[in-house]
Write a protein that binds this DNA or RNA. Structure first.
Lengths: 253, 253
DNA sequence: CCAAAAGTGTTCAGCTTACACCCATGA
DNA sequence: TCATGGGTGTAAGCTGAACACTTTTGG
């Protein structure tokens, strides 16, 4: 449990360092052993979990702030990030305040201010991440998408909005480069799409479609060790992938 | 030109009334006589035009703030609004500051603070709008999309991002209800799509596709007065339109 | 050699695309 | 009556969905 003194010290520093009223919350998606995962923090002070977040320094661009925040939580410096929504209800941190105001006088507590939060989602390669808790959390760890803990504040809404956004993006942007390891098999990539979408896809149609995008390189090697026919390995063709990111996969009109 | 005193008075009030560091900028699209238009304000103090914008009151949800800001600029209370991006570079209001700091001491000037701006776009029926300038503008008026004036600050980027977003939305959401009058002809609706997209579309395919969405009611009447065959009038089927807004027009996966 | 996973191929329906044709209207 | 815009129709081609067959692997 955080002490009153620790909170007051943090608040004094935060007032000097950060822009008031603006926060950033991040939904970090990872994928490992056929499971989609989110990075979450278990609060020291409250019974519940939060998304990794932080504040914006007085002279810092918001994208830089988001990158910095996630670098300290994951150890990754270059991270794929996208802002997706702003959460600006007047009482989104009421739950927080009721708890904090018992410990620290509101005027000495940075957290009791109203914050408008910019939501970012991140896609990372699971194995690159070194989950590191912040001063207000006792634990930072991956949580399976189908086994999520109770969220604090409006973080469940933030998470759900991020997932909805990711599902939409899937339709007109390539996804996978940031979530998959360097080399992977087609069934593994399919599993990623299936867990994001929450549906089963046809193996053969998926393969044709993916290859049709022209963003994959088929490698010589196969993944041995499975109990059955060894699938081919693929890697992303980074040039074509980047191009597809910009132009989109298919227009519509 | 605004006086020093006016600025100081506004700043003193703004500090009490508004959240610091957060602003809202709106891209209001309208459509009239085959032309796509944006609502813009001509600055009193600088040579250039701005998008309508404002600040968030201390206890006000951001969506309410955006609605309030646009209500005072347009006279419309119920306005179709969507947040689309946050603009948070550290120096986005540098241009502003250099000008303002000559007039008012920075510590007495709300505008010289750093602002992170939440971008909203709005779709409105042209004829409902009563353009009303704010205290810092000498003029509020529609500007044609293909005849835009020089923008102040980063408002050109905000505008372009809004237009890009609108073009994307077109692919999976119905657009038109908020931009068209109650009754309209198919060629008129097509003109809207063409100006948003910046391309020509096939008359017959457009009609089939639009009707295929099931969001239009064909009316008995026709639009007389044109020099040629009178086109049928249509109205939007609001129920189906709303449903399409939620579910999207076509998935993809 | 067999079960299960993976690679490859084919068919069919529905949609998009690109046109042709006819009708109504005011000049 | 004729030029023009608007309504309706249709054939060709592409794409996604559904499904069959073959190949490879470890047990």
């Amino acid at each position: 449990m955080l002490t009153k003194q620790e909170l007051e010290e943090f608040s004094a520093e935060a007032n000097l360092l950060y822009l008031d009223h603006i926060s950033i919350d991040c939904v970090v998606f990872g994928f490992h052993e056929g499971q989609m995962k989110v990075l979450m923090l278990k609060s020291k002070n409250e019974a519940g979990w939060q998304l990794p977040g932080g504040f914006v320094k007085k002279e810092e661009p918001i994208d830089v702030a988001a990158t910095r925040i996630l670098a300290t939580r994951t150890g990754i410096d270059e991270i794929f990030l996208k802002q997706f929504h702003v959460f600006g209800d007047a009482d989104r941190n009421r739950q927080h305040n009721e708890m904090y105001n018992k410990v620290v006088a509101p005027e000495k507590n940075f957290f009791s201010h109203r914050f408008i939060s910019i939501g970012y989602y991140a896609l990372v390669d699971f194995i690159d991440v070194n989950p590191t808790p912040d001063a207000f959390s006792e634990l930072c760890t991956w949580r399976d998408l189908d086994d999520l803990p109770p969220f604090l504040l409006d973080h469940e809404q933030i998470f759900k909005t991020a997932l909805d956004t990711l599902r939409l993006q899937l339709n007109y942007q390539p996804i996978g480069y940031n979530l998959m390891p360097k080399e992977f098999t087609m069934p593994e990539l399919q599993k990623l799409y299936e867990t994001i979408l929450g549906t089963k896809l046809d193996r053969r149609n998926f393969q044709r479609r993916m290859l049709g995008f022209g963003i994959l390189n088929k490698l010589e090697a196969t993944r041995k060790g499975g109990a059955h026919k060894a699938p081919y390995l693929y890697s992303f063709d980074l040039d074509n992938y980047q191009a597809a990111l910009k132009e989109g996969l298919k227009s519509g009109w």
